[in-house]
Simulated scan of single mutants.
Amino acid sequence: MANTIIHSAFFLVPPEVQLLDITGPAHLFYEAKEYGAEIRAHYLGMENKVQEFSSAGLALGNLETFSDFSLCETDILFIPGMESHLFYAESFKLKYHDFFEWLRTQRNQGAKICSVCTGTYILAFAGLLDEKNCTTHWKYFDDFKSRFPKVRLLSDRLLVKDGNLYSSAGVSSGIDLALFLLEELYGPVFTAKVAKEVVIYLRRTENDPQLSIFLQYRNHLENRIHQVQDILAQNLDKKLKIENLAERVCMSPRNLTRLFKKTTGVTIGNYQDKLRVERASQLLSKGEKVHAVALMCGLSSSNQLRTLLKKYKYPLPNKLQL
């Protein structure tokens, strides 16, 4: 491996931590170590405790004291989210004054400070995000903006990097953030091996929105429409006829068309286009050729793909030249 620098990865374990916020990134760094990366992991308490309980009730122990460590440019610190009633409390900032002061010092010393989900609140309370770009879980946008007006909160962003400060939208995006950092440290080939090891089919990037089109329009209880949506998402390279879709769910084409629009708020054609646009953007970001991407998305030519991307004004990587 080209990168032979020893990196220390620190994972904060605050009270009532959201489990996936911390275990997702921690496991990715563990797998990276298994693949030969020189990584030392530490788990820190936000208070002088050797054990904390997660929001799910699971105890996390053998915690080290944050003040025993001084981080540098080769170090990474993950700040996961916690239950909202804790950071909503008026006493929160005063209670963790010492930790916030320590956190500011680590930022100034060049450590990579990475928040997952509502961990962004901890960075903001410490004053690290003033005049900086960041993101957090979509559910907290309004509250976050009102509490921290000096912070430039970016909505509909999965990951945001501003200098040595990193933030991610929430829960599973901590895994994307961990992969993003591993790629910065060890390159895309190594990171692809780690992603494959944990069976992550498609890595998301800082250009991806928080709510993927593959997840949007699914907040309903109409099973037949869910079936159609699954068929469309799994067969983007094929030209599916409305008659065949309707037959699969035992409906007439007319009823399917009507029910799909009533249930999701978009037409079948519009939904399929949105799926293709997001998939195309992901493939292009990975370096796939334009013509190959068009075929993989069920389009007959590069020109069709260009027209579709232009129609939906989808954000593409700056390096992309169509």
Rank of each mutant, 00 (worst) to 15 (best):
F66R: 03
D68Q: 11
D68S: 08
D68A: 12
F69P: 07
S70K: 06
S70I: 05
S70M: 04
L71A: 02
L71S: 04
C72R: 14
C72I: 10
C72K: 13
E73H: 12
E73Y: 11
E73G: 13
T74E: 04
T74N: 12
D75Q: 05
D75L: 05
L77M: 04
F78E: 03
F78I: 07
I79W: 00
I79H: 03
P80N: 05
G81C: 03
M82C: 07
M82I: 08
E83A: 10
E83S: 09
S84V: 13
S84I: 12
H85V: 13
H85C: 14
H85K: 15
H85Y: 15
L86R: 12
Y88H: 14
Y88P: 08
A89D: 10
A89Q: 08
A89S: 06
S91K: 11
F92G: 01
F92L: 02
K93H: 12
L94Q: 12
L94C: 04
Y96A: 03
D98C: 04
D98V: 08
F100T: 09
F100E: 06
E101M: 14
W102I: 04
W102L: 01
R104V: 09
R104T: 09
R104Q: 11
T105P: 10
R107L: 10
N108G: 08
G110Q: 00
G110S: 01
G110K: 02
A111P: 05
